[in-house]
Design a binder for these strands. Structure first.
Length: 843
RNA sequence: GGGCGAUUAGCUCAGUUGGUUAGAGCAUCUGCCUUACAAGCAGAGGGUCACAGGUUCGAGUCCUAUAUCGCCCACCA
């Protein structure tokens, strides 16, 4: 006998270990079953899993488990990401707390510390996966920095270099002065900052005139090598070709014309600092301007600025420069301004544009191929919801060369060696003396972009690769489409000639109850493992995956966690009832069925049909609702109540068992623990464990339309009866007389009115109750109030207006002609029913 | 500046290729310890689907415009 209440801790105990020991999560590359492969988005080894991860993996687990039950060779490949910059930052901090400096510690020892960190945090993450109950094939687990992935990375680098898709160049890049590394555009987050537009006086050489130059960054004036105006800007034409005097410094710089100078913006005069502004860098290229880098790698001022400013931070230098400008009358005015400033995604520091020699991936040809593939049905990545395809396409259209070198130690070291002016790029170090390997590592996303195939053995031609590439599906949040989805797509298509995955399911982000993002400063974070402790993994998984439509953000509300627990408790109790009544059942016999058995079987089949339709479209909220509605409303509220009057019958017991089994299977992907537990207690089962049994198949064999309608009608009658009883406060003293001769046994049982039946009208007030087919009168002592009369009148009016509407509709020849026949027929039937009801009411 | 999304019951959200009287959970009100479940059961109330037009026999759904909120992208010096 089951416990009276669902106890999630008891239910979950030992289950994951059981599944693992039976190798239920392992793929079989030798089987002839159709593959269904998902590679897990590898979490960073920097930390623990949060609610977003829980949602992400719950969705994937549902898909994997569903496909497995559907007969696929499901394969979910786990792994983690070394997260170059993120992990390095954590380890640097950890060492710093111990009083150790990274550079003094040395590269080898530092990397060893990173490996220690990885092992430690990897174990925590694996334990968390286990808590969530997810069906990962650990025998295939990978790490972005393991030997295989590292080989794949080197291979891509070398091949691309040879094809000219990777090059080394001196360009202006986003520099993180804290981590002291280059960043890609995607790693720069723009946020609004209160700043100012400073108008500076750049005097014309040998003249009393001056140019009003507006800038947000006065401290960069030391790097100015020109002042630009637009060639069509009449105001300044007379100055072009002359020199301007750089304030403070007193150096003469040329006044040039360039398209970058927009007459509409600011004063129309723009200072050009090629070394510290991406646009100015371009201007500098066009005009062959000198580049003066004025900052050190930590963004303090370097030896190229006047002595008094050297070693100051950017911020301090700005203050001082402004002070000095003001003193010299060179600051015209200060306009407050709010503008977007780039910050490092990882360290949060303001990004400094710097000219550095870095490695780049040439993006245009790669992106163009993706855009081509997206035009073809069997080549494109199918996004769910489809609108996210636009996000990828847009990125492909505007992307520019990807800066992939990072001045870090933790990561894939760039396979390039230098000897003087010579460069060697290869899988192995070059032969000969004097070669020095590039110190830098690659952007962590360079390796994760290879995840869908490098994890399967690429560049070797493995069985895994052959069977599971392209992956059938990828699941991730929309915020990493640019970082990851896009890059996997162009890499897969370039390197293997095929899209990396057929479907790409995109989910939203989880916010707090007020719709705010979770953040440390707000302290509104929720630990998924606290939720599991309180409500169970099944409840968390179900809630996260069914609360909102896929692709939209959700607001986390613990009240809903409770409601989900209640739902599972409801299932638990329904199972308790069924199991306690089918102990002696030896075989399921679905013949000699009563109408209510046929009714619930029909509803069940419809539920299966609907659920599968939604599952196949990744609409888990709809699938969940379909099962919920069937289970709670039809099975629990009605069928179990009906069954109580015929529990000794084999048809009842069989139906109870059959339908309960079906519900468990439908729910298994969402709630693997509780369904496994209840399934194991069934007297009759088709498999050792539920996850190895098949998913329900829709069968018309158990669709009984006329019985369905008949019992629907009886249910409607029951509801109407109860309604009238409740509204009129009728006690047990009433008598009931059926006007119809049909067998009303079910109704009598459900309403518990066996002792109230009469066969002749009584001399007291009678209330009529009816559905389409069943009619009865309730006799009871009651004085009809004005309110009762008004309610009845309202009901009559409602019917009348509905009848009028329908008659008008049906007399509209356009409608009858153009609307589908079944819709018209339905209206006709409804009209008839409404007319009958009205007659009953008026009578 | 460009793009995307949202706007439906008090709250959180569904609503499929346009087709019954727009649904659910929570909350509210009424009555019930009916032997699976009071974390439950039965019943009830609550929405001019943001706004204005249009297409259609028929619009929450499609088209156009507007408003508010959110997100993404973009070099605004």
């Amino acid at each position: 006998m089951l416990e009276k209440k669902y106890n999630h801790e008891e239910v979950e105990k030992g289950k994951y270990e059981k599944w693992l020991s039976k190798n239920y999560f392992q793929c079989d590359e030798n089987s002839s079953k159709k593959p269904f492969c998902i590679v897990l988005p590898p979490p960073n080894v920097t930390g623990v899993l949060h609610l977003g991860h829980a949602l992400d993996v719950a969705l994937q687990d549902i898909i994997i488990r569903y496909k497995k039950m559907e007969g696929y060779d499901s394969f979910w490949l786990p792994g983690m990401d070394h997260a170059a910059i993120a992990t390095e930052a954590k380890v640097v901090k950890k060492l710093k707390d111990q009083g150790i400096n990274k550079y003094e510690y040395g590269r080898d020892k530092f990397i060893e510390a990173c490996w220690d960190w990885t092992r430690e945090h990897g174990d925590v993450i694996r334990k968390q996966w286990a808590k969530l109950g997810i069906a990962l094939d650990y025998s295939k687990e990978r790490f972005t920095l393991d030997d295989g992935l590292s080989e794949a990375v080197r291979k891509v680098f070398v091949d691309y270099y040879q094809k000219g898709l990777i090059y080394r160049g001196e360009k202006i890049i986003n520099w993180d002065p804290v981590a002291q590394t280059a960043l890609s555009n995607e790693e720069v987050i723009y946020s609004e900052e209160k700043s100012a537009f400073y108008h500076l006086k750049y005097k014309i050489e040998n003249s009393e005139e001056y140019l009003d130059v507006a800038t947000t960054r006065p401290e960069t004036l030391f790097g100015d090598t020109a002042v630009a105006v637009n060639e069509n800007d009449k105001r300044y034409q007379k100055y072009v070709g002359k020199n301007a005097i750089l304030p403070i410094v007193g150096k003469a710089i040329p006044i040039i014309t360039d398209e970058h100078a927009d007459p509409e913006k600011g004063t129309g005069v723009v200072k050009i600092t090629p070394s510290h502004d991406p646009n100015d860098f371009e201007v500098g290229l066009r005009h062959n301007l000198e580049r003066i880098t004025i900052m050190n790698d930590d963004a303090t001022m370097n030896e190229n600025v006047p002595l008094k400013y050297q070693k100051m931070t950017r911020e301090k230098c700005r203050e001082e420069v402004l002070k000095d400008l003001e003193e010299n009358g060179l600051l015209i005015k200060v306009e407050p301004l709010v503008h977007e400033v780039g910050h490092s995604e990882r360290t949060g520091v303001m990004v400094e544009p710097m000219i550095k020699k870095q490695w780049f991936v040439k993006m245009r040809p790669l992106a163009d191929r993706v855009l081509d593939y997206q035009k073809e049905k069997d080549k494109k990545v199918n996004f769910v919801p489809s609108r996210y395809e636009k996000t990828m396409n847009h990125w492909m259209e505007i992307t520019y060369d990807w800066c992939i070198s990072r001045q870090l130690w933790w990561g894939h070291r760039i396979p390039a060696w230098y000897r003087g002016e010579e460069i060697y790029v290869g899988m192995e170090p070059p032969k000969g003396e004097g070669w020095v390997q590039d110190e830098d590592v690659l952007d962590t996303w360079f390796s994760s972009a290879l995840w869908p195939f490098a994890t399967l053995g690429w560049p070797s031609n493995t069985k895994l690769l052959e069977k599971y590439y392209p992956n059938q599906c990828l699941v991730t949040a929309y915020d990493i489409i640019p970082f990851w989805v896009n890059r996997m797509t162009f890499q897969g298509e370039e390197l293997l000639g095929k899209r990396p995955f057929e479907d790409c399911v995109i989910h939203g982000l989880i916010r707090d109850k007020q719709g705010r993002k979770f953040s440390k400063s707000l302290g509104n974070g929720i630990d998924p493992f606290d939720m599991i402790k309180e409500y169970g993994a099944d409840a968390l998984r179900y809630y996260l995956t069914t609360d909102v439509a896929i692709g939209t953000d959700m607001r986390f509300d613990e009240e809903k966690m409770k409601a989900t627990w209640n739902y599972i408790n409801k299932i638990w109790n329904a199972a308790r009832f069924v199991l306690s009544n089918i102990e002696d059942l030896k075989e399921i016999h679905l013949d000699h069925l009563k109408p209510e058995d046929k009714w619930i079987l029909t509803k069940y089949e419809r539920c299966v049909h609907e659920t599968k339709k939604f599952m196949d479209k990744y609409q888990f909220n709809n699938a969940g609702n379909a099962i919920y509605d069937f289970t709670w409303s039809y099975f629990c509220d009605h069928y179990i109540e009906m069954a109580k009057y015929s529990l000794d019958q084999i048809s009842t017991q069989s139906t109870l068992c059959y339908v309960l089994t079906g519900i468990l299977k439908l729910l298994q992907p969402f709630m693997p623990y509780v369904t496994d537990e209840i399934y194991s207690m069934l007297p009759i089962k088709d498999s050792e464990d539920i996850m190895m049994s098949g998913y329900p198949k829709y069968s018309k064999k158990y669709i009984f339309e006329s019985d369905e309608k008949a019992v629907d009608d009886q249910v409607e009658f029951i509801k109407n009866f109860r309604n009238i009883k409740a509204e009129n406060n009728i006690t047990k003293d009433m008598k009931v007389m059926f006007d119809t001769d049909d067998d009303n046994e079910l109704i009598v049982n459900m309403l518990k009115i066996r002792d109230n039946i009469v066969h002749k009208p009584l001399g007291m007030k009678a209330y009529k109750v009816f559905s389409t087919r069943v009619k009865a009168q309730i006799f009871f002592e009651k004085i009809e109030t004005e309110a009762d009369k008004a309610a009845k009148e309202a009901q009559i009016q409602l019917l009348k207006s509905s009848i009028e509407r329908r008659e008008k509709l049906l007399s509209n020849s356009n409608y009858v002609k153009k609307a589908p026949k079944n819709i018209v027929e339905m209206d006709r039937q409804k009209l008839e029913e409404e007319k009958k009801k009205l007659e009953e009411l008026l009578h």
